[in-house]
């Protein structure tokens, strides 16, 4: 087992509120890791730090994509300038570059895709367009040929469509391809969002409460799909979930957060017996 994501001493404060306090955990490659904990434990904050929507106050986040150099996720977001900067002009220039062009999109490009707790689809666009937007990076290069509608643009566009249709077929959404995303039933919207995240060809997929608002059948179907993603497509999945049944069934590794601290981690069966976890959940 190799580590894909290493979280070291992660600290996140919002004013006086300590949302994350010295969190340490790691996500193994090709595993399903679940992040659980009571409400307000800091799960989504940890998620937002990993995917770059928050900049952690302290700590390191290292991402080790296979066959590629490792990525310092915090550096990608751009670091604040300090008074020592003038002494290191090269470092300062690098900082400036990240400051101007850094941000969560760089993390997404590094291979971390995410979904959101409250579904964030492009509601006024069709399902297929949603998936095409996710492939923006692969397509945007063809600017001039796009204006002229040249052959290589059409080819790239058709490839993107095929790619999108592949994921829609995986999630059994082929019939909805041309419908407006906002008009789909909630369960379908959730699946479209996961399909959209997958269209970016991620290495690590972060799912924020994928089963929220789904009925038991849908939850079951979803857990099978997630399992297939890991088994057949060798993706690594990090998920937040409240449905303990789903977590116990799916995950290889469980991390329990409470008041911003990791109180337990390990295989699901071990975590279930942990005294601290029982206390946190039962109050």
């Amino acid at each position: 087992m190799t580590t894909l994501l290493q979280v070291n001493h992660l600290n996140m404060r919002f004013g006086g509120v300590v949302a994350l306090n010295d969190c340490n955990f790691q996500v193994e490659k090709n595993s399903i890791t679940a992040l659980i904990g009571p409400n307000g434990a800091g799960k989504t904050t940890a998620f937002n730090c990993i995917t770059g929507f928050y900049r952690a106050n302290q700590g390191q986040l290292h991402f080790f994509p296979p066959n590629r150099p490792s990525v310092n996720l915090i550096q990608l977001l751009g670091q604040p300038f300090t008074w020592t900067d003038p002494i290191h002009p090269r470092r300062t220039l690098k900082k400036l570059g990240y400051k101007l062009f850094g941000g969560p999109h760089r993390i997404a490009r590094a291979g971390i895709a995410r979904t959101f707790q409250n579904v964030r689809l492009f509601k006024e666009m069709t399902v297929l367009e949603n998936l095409l937007v996710a492939q923006h990076r692969q397509l945007v290069g063809h600017f001039l040929s796009g204006i002229l509608n040249a052959k290589n643009f059409r080819k790239a566009e058709n490839n993107a469509l095929d790619h999108a249709m592949k994921w829609l077929a995986f999630f059994q959404l082929t019939t909805e391809a041309n419908r407006l995303a906002g008009q789909l039933p909630y369960g379908h919207q959730r699946r479209v969002e996961i399909a959209r995240a997958l269209c970016t060809d991620p290495i690590l997929l972060c799912l924020d409460e994928p089963a929220a608002g789904l009925n038991p059948q849908e939850t079951k179907a979803l857990s099978q799909l997630i399992r297939r993603l890991q088994k057949e497509l060798h993706l690594t999945i990090l998920l937040i979930e409240h449905d303990i049944g789903l977590v116990m069934e799916l995950s290889d590794h469980v991390i329990v957060l409470d008041y911003g601290e990791v109180i337990a981690q390990g295989p699901p069966a071990a975590v279930q017996q942990n005294q601290k976890v029982l206390e946190a959940y039962l109050g």
């Binding site: 941000g103 996710a134 970016t200």
Partner: peptide
């Protein structure tokens, strides 16, 4: 439609 979602998909 949604700026946050855009950024999560790698769009600058």
């Amino acid at each position: 439609e949604d700026e946050t979602a855009c950024r999560s998909l790698g769009i600058n």
